[in-house]
Computed example of a mutant assay.
Amino acid sequence: MNRAERQQAWRTRIENYRASGQTMVVWSKANNHTIHELKYWLKQIEGPPKSKRSKSASTFIPVTVTPPPARSNLPTGSLRIHVGAASIELSESFDSTQLREIVKVLKDLC
């Protein structure tokens, strides 16, 4: 069996493994393969896990940290964030999900 045929055979095996819902160990034993063979062919066919793939779409946004003015009008325990021309003031109990959505919108606008 040449490499292309082996690769096609393993594509089919991997589809069967995924559809089985079994762990790698259980599937490998049940199908007379080693777990190392399964892992090798998963990597060969599917590439590295998503967490290890490069994230070319990532960008860094510069952040400048400045000390607060001597007489700040912010209540104790609060924080002010500037995104472009916008300013967001947060209390200690702010909703992080809502802040994330606000920053996404401001990033597109500013």
Rank of each mutant, 00 (worst) to 15 (best):
Q98V: 07
L109Y: 15
W27E: 05
Q44V: 12
R100M: 07
T64W: 00
S28C: 07
Q44R: 10
A57Q: 14
R13P: 02
T66C: 02
S87H: 08
G77H: 03
N73K: 14
E92D: 11
L106D: 11
T12I: 14
R18H: 15
T34A: 04
R100D: 11
P67N: 03
T66D: 04
K55Q: 14
A70N: 07
S87T: 12
I61P: 00
Q22T: 08
E5A: 08
T59P: 00
V83H: 05
V25Q: 09
S87R: 13
L79M: 06
S28M: 03
T97A: 05
Q44P: 01
M24D: 03
V25A: 09
K29I: 10
E46V: 04
T12L: 05
I88Y: 12
T23V: 00
S54M: 03
Y40Q: 13
I81P: 10
S58G: 03
K104G: 04
P62H: 11
P75W: 01
P68Q: 13
A4T: 12
K55S: 13
S91W: 11
V25S: 04
R80M: 05
V63Q: 00
E101G: 06
V105T: 15
A19L: 03
T64R: 01
Y17C: 00
T66N: 04
V103K: 12
R18W: 07
E5N: 07
K43G: 05
S87Q: 14
I45C: 00
Y40D: 09
F94N: 03
I81K: 12
S56I: 06
T97G: 11
V83F: 01
P69E: 12
V63S: 00
